[in-house]
Design a protein around this nucleic acid. Structure first.
Length: 638
DNA sequence: ATAGGGTTAG
């Protein structure tokens, strides 16, 4: 049977995408012949897709090997062969190997040199060659070289596992490990760090657990390197409980183990836990390094915790951490996502090296703050948008994904070009557009009060995703705006019947590096009375200056909070009142909301920015709102 | 004969 397995790693943290960035696009997809099953008798698991196609393995026609044969002949012709079996580091072949570095062209020549020198059975030279070839990005070359090595030993396997896992050829790591088991070469603690890392990159939990049992059997259960790798494995496979268990069982912890766990919490959407663990780490006498800082910056981004983020920036500066691409990009993300674009730009300008991630962070930062999209209502920019979209495919050969389609519909929708949005869906999205696209369309209908189209779209979305409470809320809002209260009631009943609950809305505000959380009608804060009294006072003054509360029909606005509560105790208003009380005149107020800001709050905060004479920045689920002197940076498009 | 590990950005 000629079956070939094609594995394609995807997901944002995928190593193979990184390989593409480094210009190793060719290797982003690798093929495996069917002799190499992935498992050890049990089935495998992973987030990647493993699909089977039928084709013959073209290994014999490998052009690289042909080239080598040719070069070997040429070399033999040009130079008289001097046989030298000396494999010390001074041998000319070995020297050449070290000199060539991870460059494929040079390595091919050295390979030829090895063969003509009769050293093709030297395990040490071949081990080094395979490692370098793999570092140069050619896994196919490495796979071809491996069978030519006589009696592969543990050292060879360890090197292979290390280099393949390091450069993202995770499946090869697993396959070579399997061969290692069959060959009888004993595993070392080095073996396991590489294999576990490969499993982590594949998010292969079951396979990882199997390896974990091998670790225990071989007696490396308390090796700190292996343990750190295991923590990262469980963290990447979203099993934080086991990750913590491994961590707790460590006889002596290392900064790497701390970092693994901290980043694990962060990447599993638990930024509070990640920061809490950091404090614990400091108390245990460990100093954060740049990896710690980077993970914590990401946690700050999630929380919108600017003060803590600034503290981390100062820490990195004060301890002479190098502002490399990773740290710089993390800082840019932290600053934009915590509401300070100009600081982000400062970091961006001071960076020595920038890559596509860095640029994307800066550009999307501007986008979130409305420096790009707020002007979308002008048709000139709509044309720009169209041009950019078509250039994606034509100039860059990129296939538009769901996110790009959503952006286009969103752009048309904001500008009120509902027809264009609809036409775009019909024309550019071949199959069923998917719920995200329709949701965007639905939002546009609501924003521009197009009831007929809105109802039609909502009903369609409901049929596609009957489990998503957001759609019901949106539909009921559209009915409410149209004054069809009977229909509103009907939709609400439908939700109750299907036992669907709306997402709970909350807002956070950071004061003196501490984050405070408010939910609607929240009375848990010790200073609740003061906060409510101050908020009442603020709202009165708003009304005096012309603020009109949103009509009753809007009380259950968007997908958030209970309508039974008065609008004035929405979480963002509570957080704002608290913030005004706790900060000094002239300080900017920053609030983060987990859902979209409601229309009533949006208009109230515009008034409050005048009354309290403050700049107020609210980050909602999608973008930033900068309130100043009675207007908002989103120009009421949101 | 042979070096060496685990953690970090969207």
């Amino acid at each position: 049977m000629n079956r070939t397995f094609v594995f394609r790693r995807h997901g944002i943290f995928g190593r193979w995408q990184q390989a593409e960035c480094r210009g190793r696009r060719k290797e982003a997809t690798t093929t495996y012949t069917n002799g190499d099953a992935l498992d050890f008798g049990a089935s495998t698991e992973g987030t990647g897709t493993v699909k089977t196609t039928t084709s013959s393995a073209p290994l014999d026609r490998n052009p690289t090997m042909n080239k080598i044969k040719l070069q070997t002949q040429q070399l033999a012709f040009q130079h008289p062969v001097t046989r030298n079996f000396d494999t010390q580091s001074h041998s000319p072949v070995h020297e050449a190997l070290l000199r060539s570095g991870p460059r494929l062209r040079n390595l091919q020549q050295v390979h030829a040199h090895i063969i003509v020198s009769g050293l093709h059975r030297s395990r040490s030279l071949l081990t080094k060659l395979i490692s370098l070839v793999c570092t140069a990005g050619s896994i196919t070359y490495a796979r071809r070289l491996f069978p030519t090595v006589p009696n592969p030993d543990s050292f060879l396997f360890d090197s292979l596992l290390k280099v393949t896992s390091k450069f993202g050829f995770s499946i090869d790591t697993v396959l070579f490990y399997r061969r290692m088991l069959f060959s009888g070469a004993p595993q070392s603690n080095y073996t396991f760090t590489s294999v576990i890392k490969a499993c982590a990159d594949l998010s292969a939990l079951r396979l990882g657990k199997e390896i974990h049992s091998h670790v225990m059997v071989c007696g490396y259960g308390s090796d700190m390197y292996v343990q750190a790798a295991l923590i990262a494995l469980y963290a990447k496979a979203s099993d934080m409980k086991v990750a913590k268990k491994v961590f707790d069982a460590m006889p002596q912890r290392t900064i790497i183990a701390w970092n693994s766990l901290i980043s694990g919490y962060d990447q599993n959407g638990l930024p509070q836990e990640s920061i809490g663990l950091f404090h614990l780490m400091m108390e245990s006498g460990f100093q954060p390094d740049s990896a710690t800082i980077v993970s914590l910056l990401s946690s700050c981004s999630q929380l919108g915790a600017l003060d803590f983020g600034c503290w981390l920036h100062d820490y990195a500066d004060g301890n002479g951490f190098d502002l490399n691409v990773v740290l710089g990009t993390s800082l840019i993300n932290m600053y934009t996502r915590c509401g300070n674009v100009s600081k982000a730009r400062e970091v961006f300008d001071s960076m020595k090296e920038r890559n596509v991630v860095t640029w994307t962070a800066m550009i999307s930062g501007y986008g979130m703050h409305g420096y790009v999209l707020s002007a979308c209502a002008h048709s000139g920019l709509i044309d720009d948008g169209r041009r950019v979209f078509s250039s994606m495919k034509e100039a860059y050969g990129l296939v538009p994904g769901v996110e790009h389609n959503v952006c286009m519909v969103d752009m048309f929708g904001r500008a009120g070009l509902l027809n264009d949005a609809y036409q775009f869906i019909k024309k550019f999205i071949p199959k069923e557009p998917g719920p995200a696209v329709w949701t965007s369309m639905l939002g546009a209908c609501r924003m521009h009060r197009n009831f007929d189209l809105g109802v039609k779209v909502a009903e369609h979305v409901l049929s596609v995703e009957p489990e998503n409470p957001g759609h019901y809320v949106m539909l009921s809002n559209i009915y409410a705006l149209a004054g069809r209260m009977d229909r509103v009631e009907m939709v609400r009943n439908m939700m109750t019947r299907r036992r669907l609950k709306k997402q709970v809305g909350y807002s956070t505000i950071e004061i003196n590096r501490k984050t405070y959380l408010f939910s609607m009608g929240d009375k848990s804060h010790p200073q609740t009375n003061t906060i409510y009294r101050y908020l009442d006072e603020l709202m009165c003054r708003c009304s005096e200056s012309g603020y009109v509360p949103a009509p009753e029909s809007l009380m259950h606005d968007l997908e958030e909070e209970e309508r039974d509560y008065a609008l004035r105790y929405h979480s963002e208003k509570l957080a704002l009142a608290f913030g005004l009380l706790k900060t000094n005149q002239g300080e900017t107020i920053r609030i983060v909301k987990n859902l979209r800001i409601c229309e009533d709050c949006h208009s109230a905060i515009k008034h409050i920015s005048i009354i309290a004479d403050r700049e107020i920045i609210v980050r909602d689920k999608f973008r930033f709102h900068h309130f100043k002197d009675g207007s908002c940076s989103c120009l009421d498009y949101w």
